[in-house]
């Protein structure tokens, strides 16, 4: 049997990063699902300082009853109405009965309508998430993880277009190039860590009446308390989009290798045989 390639195991993620990553995974799902349960207590989004300011909600989920008594789920976005029975507005509860609720029970934590418990899940894990995030920021600057692994180099910046083309062709780095993150990956991580996550936390604080009083009027800078709630909601879905892309990339670039690197820390670098002799992957130009 001919050897097609040679490979080596290298240390990829340090123990603190691995632990903090998995705490994040759990926190993210708890926060998302409990957040949707909280949203269901008032399944509407308004812009402005209050919900009652003479303007219609930009997003609304509700139940309407037909003449023969059937429940219809209606979702209204910027005035456009959609029948979303079964998923938004009206969906099945744990007794398999159609009931009025914003997001369906399989998306929420707890499953049934339970605002008090959803808030406990959400606010408890919000604390865990924030503390974990602060530890990460401290650790990754101190260990130079940010500077060495996440900040794009000038070579990275010059190859952005190439990286975009590689991504859409699902072409992945091999050999020594796989030792570091690619430039789009770096931007995605930096954007999530330093923009989206701080923003969603700040927007969460913006909904707290007490934190509003620390500097009265600061929420108006973001458009007011209800706009802050909208931003919190939108950023949550941007993070969901990130997780989808992240998991997709994890799967297509070698699920087991990636998972191992986030569990044991070891990552396999593969050198295609023919290309090892020339020292570099010529197809990448």
């Amino acid at each position: 049997m001919p050897e097609l390639s040679e490979s080596i195991l290298i240390p990829r993620h340090t123990l603190p990063v691995r632990i903090m990553h998995w705490i994040n995974v759990i926190s993210f799902f708890v926060l998302l699902m409990s957040g949707l349960n909280i949203f269901n207590a008032h399944p509407a989004l308004n812009l402005g300082k209050s919900s009652y300011n003479g303007h219609e909600p930009i997003l609304e989920m509700e139940a309407e009853e037909t003449d023969n008594g059937e429940l219809v789920g209606v979702t209204r976005i910027f005035g456009y109405e959609f029948d979303t029975t079964g998923i938004f507005g009206v969906s099945k509860d744990d007794q398999r009965e159609l009931v009025e609720r914003g997001f369906p029970s399989w998306m929420t934590l707890p499953g049934p309508k339970w605002l008090a418990m959803a808030r406990h899940w959400h606010l408890f894990f919000a604390w865990l998430f924030v503390i974990n995030g602060l530890c990460y920021i401290y650790y990754s600057f101190k260990s130079r993880h940010v500077q060495a692994d996440l900040l794009p180099t000038s070579k990275d910046l010059a190859s952005i277009w190439q990286s975009v083309k590689d991504h859409v062709r699902f072409k992945h780095a091999v050999g020594d190039e796989a030792r570091s993150y690619n430039v789009l990956q770096k931007f995605a991580y930096l954007g999530v860590i330093f923009i989206l996550l701080p923003l969603i936390i700040l927007m969460g604080w913006g909904m707290s009446p007490f934190l509003n009083s620390l500097l009265p009027g600061w929420v108006d800078f973001f458009g007011g308390r209800q706009t802050v709630r909208v931003i919190h909601f939108i950023v949550a879905w941007l993070l969901v989009a990130f997780v989808f892309i992240h998991v997709f990339e994890v799967i297509i670039t070698g699920l087991w290798n990636n998972l191992r690197s986030m569990i044991t820390g070891k990552y396999r670098i593969t050198y295609p045989n023919a290309k090892k002799e020339t020292g570099r992957d010529e197809s990448r130009g």
Binding site: M117, F124, W127, F210, N212, S213, L214
Partner: peptide
């Protein structure tokens, strides 16, 4: 779990009292 998770408000109250002045005023419109 309920009693563990309900510590959220204890942590929030403690932190709010720590960082917020006693007489911090709510926004007026």
């Amino acid at each position: 779990v309920q009693s563990l998770l309900s510590n959220d408000s204890r942590i929030s109250r403690f932190t709010h009292r720590l960082i917020g002045p006693r007489k911090a005023m709510a926004q007026e419109f």
